[in-house]
């Protein structure tokens, strides 16, 4: 039953058919599937499958990523309160766009995908000063600061990831907090993340979940 729902749900994501995807999840719940089964056997695996398909060069588009992230987030919000036991959280991430950058799509996709994979995500919005990234990461005990930048000057600028790195160094936080960057400039130059002193970059929101999962393993226990 779950496999059939999964297949139809994944198809709905690829068709960017939000209503059909949500209807499938609601229908499964009505038919006796537990919230845990729906999340761990349908919603989360769908994000993982999209990630695997990407690595196999089965290109998916930004509109598909957007819908997948949005539905995942909606589903998690709907189903988590119904869990019999609180799920194990895989890590905490603060996310936002670089100072001076007002393009919020990429981070929104990353946020939805991460929530589907049981990460706690705090979205700081757009045009986020470096100090706020670091302060919030410390306050929330986050291991990852994820910075999205859609323009070259906000990706490379002194007030973006470079400044976050500087602050982490100054405060002795580099072993506890890692920096992930993403956005168009990093896609066009895949070494650019090194120029901004980030620990890693992700090509898209789906890929970000995989990279963050790896990155979090490098973080020293707090």
């Amino acid at each position: 039953m779950k496999q059939s729902i999964f297949n139809r749900y994944y198809e709905a994501l690829l068709d960017t058919d939000r209503d059909q995807a949500i209807a499938l999840l609601s229908g499964a719940l009505d038919n006796g599937a537990t919230p845990e089964e729906i999340v761990f056997e349908v919603v989360t695996p769908a994000i993982e499958r999209m990630s695997r398909d990407l690595t196999k060069d089965l290109a998916t588009t930004l509109s598909q990523h957007f819908i997948a992230a949005q539905i995942s987030e909606e589903a998690i919000e709907m189903l988590l309160p119904l869990f019999s036991v609180a799920p194990e959280i895989r890590g905490s991430v603060v996310i936002g766009t670089s100072a001076g950058d007002f393009h919020g799509l990429g981070k929104k996709i990353v946020r939805g995908c991460l929530r589907a994979k049981m990460f706690t995500v705090v979205d700081l919005g757009v045009n986020v000063p470096a100090e706020r990234f670091v302060d919030q990461a410390v306050t929330l005990g986050a291991s990852i600061i994820a910075i999205s930048a859609m323009m070259v000057h906000t990706a490379l600028g002194a007030d973006g990831a470079l400044k976050v790195r500087q602050l982490l160094q100054q405060r002795g936080l580099e072993s506890r907090i890692k920096i992930l960057v993403g956005g168009a400039p990093f896609r066009f130059d895949q070494n650019l993340y090194r120029s901004v002193a980030a620990d890693a970059w992700a090509e898209n929101g789906i890929e970000a979940t995989r990279v963050i999962t790896e990155l979090i393993k490098e973080v020293a226990p707090q």
Partner: peptide, 12 residues
């Protein structure tokens, strides 16, 4: 209106 709002309106 912002990219996310546009994709939302376009797709849903």
């Amino acid at each position: 209106m912002g990219m996310d709002k546009w994709l939302q309106l376009l797709l849903t």
